[in-house]
Design a protein around this nucleic acid. Sequence first.
DNA 1: GTGAAAGCGCTAACAG
DNA 2: CTGTTAGCGCTTTCAC
Lengths: 334, 334
Amino acid sequence: MSDVAHAAGVARVTVSRVLANPESVKPATRAAVQEAIAKLGYVPNLNAGTLASSRSRIVGCVVPSLSNAWFAETIDGLSDVLADANYQLLLAQSRYDPAQELRAASTLLGRRVDALVLTGVDHAPGLHELVHRAHIPIVETWDLPGHRDGIEEAPLDMIAGFSNVKAGETAGVHLLARDCRCLGFIGADEERARKRLRGFASVVEREGRGPVATWLGHPPTTFEAGATALRQLLERSPKLDAVFCGNDTLAAGVLFECRRSGVRVPHDIAVMGFSDQPIAAATEPAITTVAVQARALGQQAGRMLLRRLENKPAPQPSPMVADLGYRIVVRESA
Amino acid sequence: MSDVAHAAGVARVTVSRVLANPESVKPATRAAVQEAIAKLGYVPNLNAGTLASSRSRIVGCVVPSLSNAWFAETIDGLSDVLADANYQLLLAQSRYDPAQELRAASTLLGRRVDALVLTGVDHAPGLHELVHRAHIPIVETWDLPGHRDGIEEAPLDMIAGFSNVKAGETAGVHLLARDCRCLGFIGADEERARKRLRGFASVVEREGRGPVATWLGHPPTTFEAGATALRQLLERSPKLDAVFCGNDTLAAGVLFECRRSGVRVPHDIAVMGFSDQPIAAATEPAITTVAVQARALGQQAGRMLLRRLENKPAPQPSPMVADLGYRIVVRESA
DNA sequence: GTGAAAGCGCTAACAG
DNA sequence: CTGTTAGCGCTTTCAC
């Protein structure tokens, strides 16, 4: 920066101004500085800027995993909105482990991110205090606060999500309406999938058709996991006539296993998926699933952050909660 | 940090040492410092560290888009390898636009990333000089250098990729062997897809079965794009009996359109995809495709970077090129 | 509109 | 093993 200033015959602070706020500098000076920048190929050190100004224009984001198309889509939406406002994304994965999520969040805060996006509402103890000390906007996604003793749990700050419990209930209602008698659940052993199970099981049991034959496997989930899960469930409960899967990948795996073993879907077993990935529309029979707006979750999170970031530093204490909902997509498999 | 130092009764450097290299401090002192850190909830400012040490432990990565599962997988692999070595990922999207890629790279360099991962080998003029000034390891992925006037173009630095041209040739050879007479290509109007087309068209024309009926659409691609493309191609070339698609999403879209309009696959039209996404195995008929190792590309890129990062600062001028290849997966659609 | 001085929070190099 | 002294490259604040 000194070099540029020297080449343009101005002080360093003028270069800084040209970069940050060009209008505050006389056109002639500005032009000279810009020319010097171009000639020298000067690339400003944004870390130094962050240190001096304590604004990084970086948003941190922690997701369980990127190999799942659904989180990738959310990140895509988030990144889209942020990029337009000149913010960048610093990414970390938690591998579905609250302890890793806590560590990741800590590192991100160490980078002095201007805001933080987290996945889910269930975190390690300690995360709450950690993020609150940072005094930055936070958005939790992909879930909504639950209820403990009848009262709604408080979000960390803002939320862009949907109710996994209710989505599970909806799946249960749908399968019950199809007159299924012996229901199962196949999902990842992970908080949000367990909530879907909880909602699902509650309506099934309320109708006296419980208990739900349950299979929970370690994420990330695969076709093979779905196939294995179905075999095991069928061994335990030979009369199984419906399974709700925690995601469409598992549901597709179940479908493949059915095809291999001559089980007819939905005639012998009804199969439901979750999240409405492209694959759900592609299989034969096509998968009935609960669609969530993965991309919109990210965009909404981004918009909420920007509103707070661009406005007054610490304005309204408005805890904003956006429920983007879900929608059942009835196709052929259930 | 001063607070911590004070609370522990040591100098600030000692705190710094406990953080960076605990063994270099006497256990008793170390314990005192760690206790103070915990008590005060101190989160070190990593930007200040970066500024002082000029090492950020951040790797920058530019991808065309995250909504494509294939790049997300590469990032997942990369992130995996880097996380184990305590590096983080700063992400930027280029939206398939070389100018945006250049801007993104510049911003990432401004953050003083320790290394850079780019997608593809075709960049805006200016990128070459920009990244070379930075003197950091670079890996280009998802492609290999082409040939100009018979000699191989030089990579920016390192490469973890595969040949899109040869992959296209392989697809052509496969369809030709099935005795297809009138061949088409459906892909995104983007450099790597165009290379697949180039390879494909070259073998088709060499056999005198050209020209290839071609449809190129703006990325990102969708089922609908695939369906539309097929309709348009069929209008132009009613005798079309084979299409090679630049990705599996398009191929699935083509399949759906065929089903709707009663065209039998592969009997009336053979359909090939690219990249072997889960959907390719799920459709009926299952899609014959060219599989690439999306995740491995990222992991390999990460390993190459780490080797350079952990070793001597500017050692061997070894331009490393890893060709991870591709593999044709013959299923039912062609 | 532009400049001079001070400092953001850390690490490097050297000393003890 | 621990402390002292100098910056890293910017932005801020206040003069001019």
